[in-house]
Design a protein around this nucleic acid. Sequence first.
RNA 1: GCCCCCAUCGUCUAGCGGCCUAGGACAUCACCCUUUCAAGGUGGAGAUCACGGGUUCGAAUCCCGUUGGGGGUACCA
Length: 516
Amino acid sequence: MSQNSVHPTPLSESDSHTITTRAARTRFAPSPTGFQHIGGYRTALFSWLLARHTGGQFLLRIEDTDTARTVPGAVDAVIEGFKWLGLEIDEGPEVGGPYGPYFQTQRRDLYLNYAEQLIKSGHAYRCFCTPERLQQVRDQQRANGEPPRYDRLCRRLTQGEIATRLKDGMSYVVRLASPTSGKTVVKDILRGEITFDNASLDDAVLLKSNGYPTYHLASVIDDHLMKITHVVRAEEWIPSAPLHVITYTALGWEPPIFAHVPDVLSAQGGKKLSKRFGAIPLLGYRDRGYLPWAIVNYMALLGWSFDDKSNVLSREQLIEAFDLDRVGVAPARYDEERLLWFNGYYIRQLSSEELLERSLPFMERPEAEGGLPDVVARPIDRELATKVLHLEQERMKTLAEAPGMTSFFFVNTLSYEPQTLIAKNMDAERTLNGLKRAHEVLVTLKGWEAPDMEARLRELVAELGLKPVQLFTSLRVAVTGRTVSPPLFETMEVLGRRTSMARIEQAIAALGAHAS
RNA sequence: GCCCCCAUCGUCUAGCGGCCUAGGACAUCACCCUUUCAAGGUGGAGAUCACGGGUUCGAAUCCCGUUGGGGGUACCA
């Protein structure tokens, strides 16, 4: 088997069925050269969902063969990201597994052996060309309007010439001997069959001169050895997919099923989401107060849909419903508004305890990092926080908003413009009077419960011939220091009698001074 | 340049030849609820299904072309 074209069979109905029903082993194989963002995790999510849906396994493999670009901490961050999202990894670094190691740098001998095997079988060859010559060739080709490709100089070397160079200690790479005629078909479960003219293929480097494999070799070998059934990866891999198919075949292996999923585009423009174009690392969302499942739910619907109306999906529902067949092929744009909506929705679903546990870290961080004012003692009173959070729950879009929204419950002194005490269609005098009368009414109250306050204060509103807004606005500002707050009476109840009354008194004083 | 992928409301999408005078969600607007803001409810606006040719009794749905966007073109993944 050498330079023949590959003749695949079309994807039939039954193929497509068995393809998604048998237990799938999938993998996410990032290179630790940076920090993964929503785009990468979305691809990983599809992989994970396929594995879970079919009762298979999801593995994590670190493609760290580009040692120069490896970034410290990137591996830990990826794993941390999966943990945070709640997507378990069945095999990989940390958890191990029967097909390890899961770092490609620890599998060098494997790649070397297979490269050797490919050379022996004539599917690959040593190339002694220098980078300079390669560059020169490409420049020339470009100048001639030809597609830049390796000119296969070393493919024509005789055994003797090769031996001489080896003896001279010349460094070399190993290249794939791509077929030069015929066609190679890549079967993609999402896109059907993609046909490539072999004449347009390049003799890709499989093994670098430093002995490390390139993606093209390493991923093929690992995916096969790790028994990966479905390769779910970004669409940027489509152009090199024929090389992979050829390599599988050359090694005598059956290629896995490919699913090239579309990119996630940046919010601003039609560019692929990336650090350069508006992407933030996944864990950045955790720091910004996002709930992991809100992210997962949002990501799942970026390029995949269940039907014409499903929107909010639980973990169980998602796993049950997910199918590769329903993954779209058109790139989707990242939409922060929609993500925020999901986040707000899931925050509203939280129990009091969960809301507390999730919000506390945000409230307790230093003021400079967005936490409550530093004058508020840590740890924060959990009982108070629970009540307060309950009041703000349906208003929060992110957990990071908690400190800002609730600070007036925790501080001793409020600071606001006395002017804001005066409601629309009110004046200072009537406002002052209203506050004084409200104070009188509240003082006489036996208990300190919202329904009571509301009943008595509404009577007062009627007595003063005012509209509820006219009085309640003043009280709101007096008690919270802001014009926007949770419902007034519940707020006062949580705030407590002493604090509420003191604040109303302060407002009266402030307004008195302001008016005079 | 060459190769490849893609194309339905602003955004995510449903649609896989007749159920479409194109459905849902986010965003947006109005109204209701209402002590503010939210949440919730109701309703509206918003897509000549990129364009042009076919095929067909019939096309958003199939085919071809055009345009537009994206990706690849490394001893990076």
